[in-house]
Amino acid sequence: MRIDIITVLPELLKSPFEASILKRAIDKKLVEIHLHNLRDYSIGNYKQVDDYQFGGGAGMVLMIEPIDKCISKLKAQREYDEVIYMTPDGETLNQGISNEISLKKNIIILCGHYKGVDQRVRDLFITKEISIGDYVLSGGELAAAVFCDSLIRLLPGVLNDETSALTDTFQDNLLAPPVYTRPSNYKGIKVPEILLSGNFPSIEKWREDKALERTTKKRPDLLN
C-alpha cells in the first residue's frame, strides 16, 4: 500500500511513522508513506498556499492552484484509488471505513488547514471526505496520522498475530470484551475462572456474551 500525504506541516507528521507498529510496517515494506509539502507547489516568491476568502470573513483558505499542481503531479506517476480529504464535516471514521480503505493500493490524503480548502478542490479532486470526530483541530495532520494508523495495522503482516485485528473493538459492531493477564489473583481480585479453564469454546462464548453486554451498556447505538 502506498499513501501520499499532502500537508503544509510535514514535520508534524514525521514522528508517528518513526516508531512502533507503523515504523515496522514501513521497514518491512508493507506500506510506503510519502509526505508532500504543499509549499513546494506554492505560488510566487513568497511561497503562498493560502489567501483570504471571497465575500469576507475570518480565516485563511488553502488555494486550489498549489493543490492542483501536487495532485496532478502524483496522478501523472500512478493511478490512485482514492483522494481523501481530512475535514471536520466529512464522514465520521469508523472501523468499516478503515477496513474498506485498507484494501486499496494507492491513496492520497489531503490535510486541511486554516479555514479549509477552496471548494473547487473538493468538487474536482476529492473522492472521499473523512472526519475523526465532531471537533475541530488546527489542521488535518493529526487526523491523517490517526487514519493511517487505523489502516496500516490492518495490512497483512503488520501485526505479529494477524487475528488480533479481527477481534478488535468495532469489527463486528461490538465493543471488545474485558481482557486480563497475570497475575490471576491481584489483591484478592481474581480473573474469571472461565478464562483459566482451557475450555476454548466456552471461553469464546463468554467473550461474545461480555462483548454484547458491554456494547449494550456503553454503546447501544452500535446495535441499531
Results as ranks from 00 to 15, higher is better:
M1V: 02
M1F: 01
I3G: 00
I5L: 03
E11G: 13
I21G: 04
L22W: 00
A25L: 10
V31L: 00
I33W: 04
Y41R: 00
K47C: 02
V49D: 00
Y52S: 10
V61M: 11
I67S: 03
I67V: 15
K73W: 05
K73V: 03
Q77S: 09
D81V: 07
E82G: 04
I84E: 07
M86R: 05
T87A: 07
G90I: 14
E91V: 14
N94M: 12
I97T: 12
N99P: 02
L103R: 15
K104V: 04
N106G: 09
I107K: 08
I107G: 05
I108W: 09
L110K: 01
C111P: 10
G116P: 09
V117M: 12
R122M: 03
I130G: 01
I130V: 13
I130D: 00
S131A: 11
G133L: 09
G139H: 12
E141Y: 12
E141C: 13
S150A: 15
L159N: 10
N160V: 06
N160R: 14
D161C: 12
S164D: 13
L166E: 14
L166Y: 09
T167S: 11
D172N: 15
N173W: 09
A176T: 08
V179S: 13
Y180D: 07
T181D: 12
N185R: 11
K187R: 15
G188P: 04
E193S: 08
S202C: 07
E208V: 06
A211I: 05
T215R: 03
T215N: 02
K217L: 15
K218C: 10
P220E: 08
D221K: 04
L222Y: 01
